Computed example of a mutant assay.
Amino acid sequence: MTATVSNFYYGAVTPVAAYLMACLGAALGLRCTTRSLRRPQRRAGWLALGAISIGCGIWTMHFIAMIGFNVQGALVGYDTVRTLLSLVVAIAVVAVGVFLVGYRGGTPANLAVAGTVTGVGVAAMHYLGMAAIHTNGTLRYDTMTVAVSIVIAVAAATAALWAAVSIHTLWSSLGASLVMGVAVTGMHYTGMAAISVQLTGRAAVPESSTSLLSFLLVMLAGPLVVLLVAAVIVMFDPDMMLGDDEQGRSAVQPQTPGAAFQAQQSAQPSQPPSW
């Protein structure tokens, strides 16, 4: 018997919260990438923080959205190892894309490779997270809908990486993060639309599994703390709040007449006194 599946068990709360988490991760990742381009000597550190922020944002989005996942007439639980492995995959594949564009630039060929690798990896994270589900039913997927979700993931990843190396002003980054939140969340719900559950009548939830809500809240605690720490680093770094345009303007501010005179005097070689 095919069960009724819902992705909005708690109404609009979970999709809205998931979208905001995706936006937060994208915004932090974009600002960290901007910082890495300004400070090449610390590029690796900033790119790593950006990859962690985006990866945690995507993973957090996924599992906040999964709080609203419900299978009528079935118990739902999660395998801890696969759930944590999906987090590692999310961060790793985003890091591959971010480091590629961070060190090799945003050429079309490089963006295509980095976006494809990252997008396929994000989709793998999603379906690995779904594979962590234990329920007294069999999850089936519509092949065409799965393919569409992967295409969306690749397009979203490519756009995010392009934005990371092309958009540097604060407000442009925030706007790009809002668009990326729509793309990433859309990929998730497209993938969820591919699912149907065939009830087997057997309790497939192992004894060690916890309830869906309590398990996910515990799992979400760590990545949320990471995003909070990254946000604090961004907020307390003054240069992070400036874009390239603002930085350039501040570097070429016209000097006052007094300052110009002092600079001219200091530039002139000192003459020995005449006796």
Rank of each mutant, 00 (worst) to 15 (best):
F8I: 08
A17P: 09
A17N: 04
M21N: 01
G25D: 05
A26I: 10
A26E: 03
L28V: 12
S36K: 01
R42D: 15
A44N: 07
G45F: 11
G50P: 00
I54Y: 00
I58V: 15
I58F: 05
M61R: 00
F63N: 09
F63R: 04
A65Q: 04
A65C: 13
M66V: 09
N70K: 11
N70S: 13
V71T: 10
A74H: 00
L75Q: 12
G77E: 07
D79T: 02
L84T: 10
V89R: 00
V93Y: 02
G97E: 05
V101M: 03
P108L: 08
A109W: 01
N110Q: 08
L111I: 09
A112T: 11
T116Q: 04
V122L: 14
A131N: 09
A131G: 12
A132I: 07
H134F: 14
G137H: 00
T143C: 12
V148L: 15
S149I: 11
I150H: 05
A153W: 05
V154H: 02
A156P: 02
A164W: 01
I167Y: 04
I167T: 07
T169L: 02
G181K: 03
A183I: 10
A183D: 02
Y189M: 08
T190K: 07
M192C: 11
G201C: 10
S208G: 03
S209C: 14
T210S: 12
T210F: 12
L216G: 12
V218F: 08
A221Y: 01
A221M: 14
L224A: 14
V225H: 05
A230H: 00
V232P: 02
V234K: 00
D245E: 15
R249A: 14
S250F: 14
P254S: 11
P254H: 00
P257R: 04
F261A: 15
F261W: 11
Q264G: 13
Q265E: 07
Q268V: 11
P272E: 09
P273Y: 11
